[in-house]
Design a protein around this nucleic acid. Structure first.
Lengths: 239, 239
DNA sequence: AAGTGGTCTAGACCACTCA
DNA sequence: GAGTGGTCTAGACCACTTT
């Protein structure tokens, strides 16, 4: 990834749309024109355009062309798998991460069920809170399989767990299954989060898998309700 | 859509995975084998597989093959754009829709901003509640541009708005931008929803566009927090 | 009728995994 | 080294929009 021609074309076009060098409402050059401009075959152009379409940059209309969409207001997650660190880097506020617990669990019945573990598999448990303006608004509880992540330090966790996993360990994350619900705040939430009169928190549970489809992490991200926001772009899949 | 070869192959394979005729953890036949089986070129097979991958059915691993994922627990929305009716049809509980209001708004400053309307564009406003077991747990507030949806009756709204729009009017929905937040229940929420001691509701705001990129609907879907659940499958896009 | 995107093909070469 | 998926190509034909 990243080195392919269609990916480069995608990056170039998505940047131009982001920077409004190509304005919303306008049409992209035709596929044949792009084919000439980028010295690529039409199918390669079409791969780049399909990616732009999936990510909400353009809308393709048969017989007409590719309409550029207004992408300026999709300023947050844009769905997908984004680590907290990447998110925080894009916001103006100063975020701070604090590690509250880092232990190696030898056995836990509930986790074993949830993550489909064998009896002898140990799991790293990490509890961290994320603060803005001295208010702890997110509580992250991560569980990582030790056979995949052998060692973990508080320092790794305080910086970015994903950075460590992807760059230091060289693991490649493939996909995640997520679930968002709203639940009563627990004693633990009360302890680590700056809950004012809140009795509810937003809970995002994720099962995270590597590129070889191996499960390696379960995460519970607990958000103070007033600070939670999830943005999504969805296409209708017609039958 | 729906008539293309790759789409037929996608439907066939996704069904087989859903029905567990192909088991999770197993490998799909190789692309060349599928190419023979379906009498299609490899690129056509690859389009079907890319779609399976995007929707969480398989994980492709270079040099190995396509691993079938466990899809049995992603039984709910699976993200994407799904109407309430389609959702309700898939659940066991008996849902009931009640129309509380259906009016044509001539002008509304807030909506005009939000939907980028001209001064003379009228908008249908529909308020509906959705109930299970005699408890109203979702309040839907829809706003539809009248120049696109000329007429609307309480009957249309009580059945399925999307059915009416797509099948009766022949409009094709393209995509939507959604935002999920948690907010204080309003007087209106109190009035139409069966809120017990709840003071918070989950609000899903959507801007819905047609296939030609024309905005035609704004929706606020307000859920009782304990009945809200959002499931998502997300792939990591590596740079 | 001309131009647009949508689909499909056969073939080539590369990158990766596994024996 | 054989077999897998990943990328790219040139060309064909179809479906749709516009003039």
């Amino acid at each position: 990834m990243g080195k392919s021609k269609f990916n480069a074309i995608y990056n170039d076009l998505s940047e131009k749309i982001h920077d409004q060098l190509i304005k919303a409402g306008a049409l992209l050059p035709t596929e044949n024109e792009l084919s000439e401009q980028y010295h690529a075959s039409r199918e390669t152009i079409r791969k780049a355009l399909a990616m732009l379409s999936r990510n909400g940059y353009i809308q393709k209309v048969q017989g007409k062309g590719s309409i550029v969409l207004d992408v300026t207001r999709q300023n947050f997650p844009i769905s997908g798998l984004t680590s907290f660190r990447e998110l925080a880097n894009h916001s103006k506020d100063k975020w701070k991460t604090k590690v509250h617990q880092l232990v190696l669990l030898k056995s836990d019945e509930h986790l074993r069920m949830l993550m489909n573990l064998t009896a002898d598999q140990a799991v790293w448990k990490v509890i961290r809170s994320r603060s803005v303006n001295n208010e702890a608004v997110i509580l992250d509880k991560d569980y990582l399989i030790q056979s995949i992540v052998p060692m973990l330090t508080a320092d790794n966790c305080e910086r970015s767990l994903y950075d460590y996993i992807e760059h230091e360990l060289g693991l490649r994350i493939g996909f995640a299954k997520k679930e968002i619900t709203v639940e009563h705040a627990t004693a633990e939430d009360q302890r680590y989060l700056t809950l004012n009169r809140d009795t509810q928190v937003v809970v995002v549970r994720s099962l995270v898998y590597l590129e070889n489809a191996e499960l390696f992490q379960y995460t519970e991200s607990r958000h103070r309700a007033d600070k939670f926001r999830f943005v999504d772009f969805a296409r209708r899949e017609h039958q």
